[in-house]
Amino acid sequence: MKSLKESLIRWRRRPWIWSFLGAILIWVLAVGLAGGHGGWSVFTTALAFSAFTVLVGLGQMFVITLGPGNIDLSLPANIGLASAVAMKVMDGSDARIAIGLGAAILAGLLIGLANYALIRVLRIPPLIATLSSSFVIRSVGISYGRGLQIKPPQAFADVVLTRIGGISLPALLVLLMSIFAGVVLARTVYGRSVLAVGQNARAARLAGLPVGLVRLATYALCGALGGLCGALLAGFTGGSSLDVGAEYLLTSIAVVVIGGTSVAGGLANVPGLWGAALMLFLTATLLNSSGLGVDVRDLMTGLIIIAVITLAGGRRSLR
């Protein structure tokens, strides 16, 4: 009896549980509205789309965990450019898929490094630095892509759209990456350093941690994940597009916050990303299928974000 109570308390302490409960509730509503049919397909579709949100959410989570002020606003431009780079390098040829993927990730990585260079060398706040760089990246994307929509190689599109037991391959990949990210955060020197810097950068520096290097690696990681997301999205949607990343500006931040990661930094939560991403996608599905328009969907998304952050409390919970 006691152990049950203890485990209940332990479960309640996990903030990500709420995003999953919310996702399940909305899933039940959505399936109920459809007359109890298609529950599995609604779930697998949600998984397939959430995978991309979680992928960029992972990068954004690492950056936000670095502490107050740290944020990457260049992700949408990054995703758009990377999708163009991937498609152009692959050039519709199955043999060049690996090179294209590598090129997209490299492009993202370079963007991350450039972001950190702006932050560090010019001492610009991350918000403004990544905002300014996103303008520049967008122009690079326009002049590089020239508005062409290049089709992905058939094999690449097939792989990205493959479903194993109903679950899409990108979702499985991102699931593995999430587990890996969780292990990195909890068990590696780099992961622990990110948390330490986020909790108190001054203390971390005095403790001898290479704070600058940790930040550099984190922005680079976030950029690389954005690059990978761009390449996968191009395969998923059947071609590169500069606007493919537009929706990920706000959703990448939203899933991090709803998922229980502390906005004040120093406290990350990987499972919550999935719960939040599924919840947002299922909310959109539910509102779409119940005939309500995009206006109600936006309104609900906003109210959910505010409700979650109000209930979870802000900086106070950290102290």
């Binding site: 706000l250 906005v263 936006d298 998304t301 906003g302 109210l303 505010i306 802000g314 900086r315």
Partner: peptide
Amino acid sequence: RQLPSIVVTLGMSFVW
């Protein structure tokens, strides 16, 4: 609630 303004106003941007 000592909330981070960035997140609250991010939510409000959807609301507006």
